[in-house]
Amino acid sequence: MKMVDTSYLIEAVAVASVVTFSLRALPFLIKGAVLRQKVILAIKSSMPYGIVTILAIYAIVSTKITSWQIAAGEALAISATLVLHLLKRNVLLSIFGGTFLYVLAINVPIARI
């Protein structure tokens, strides 16, 4: 495979880095003015709740499903995480319980159907 030009790669990283940093940092400079808007203040507390919910669903649906075993493993592990957390509300237990099940389910050798 032909090697990609070094200076091009560095420029590409620099461009993506500057754009990403600007998106993250610039809004803080105008945050004060935005927060004075009453309507923004009212929805401010609901934003994280909604965004975290969206990120959770994104994490679930963006898993690459290449076999029924991965699909079943993911469904099983997410259900386990949900149930464990609703019952015990222990973050470590919910996360590692779910992850342990997931790793087990996708790696256990099963004859392909």
Binding site: V52, A77, I95, Y102, V103, N107
Partner: peptide, 24 residues
């Protein structure tokens, strides 16, 4: 097989979403 441990992050977002719903 190591890649399966990336599920930690999915599980964490799920847990945070449940906590957000219960807290609010």
């Amino acid at each position: 097989s190591l890649s399966g441990f990336g599920f930690v992050l999915t599980a964490l977002f799920v847990v945070l979403a449940i906590d957000a719903a219960l807290d609010s």
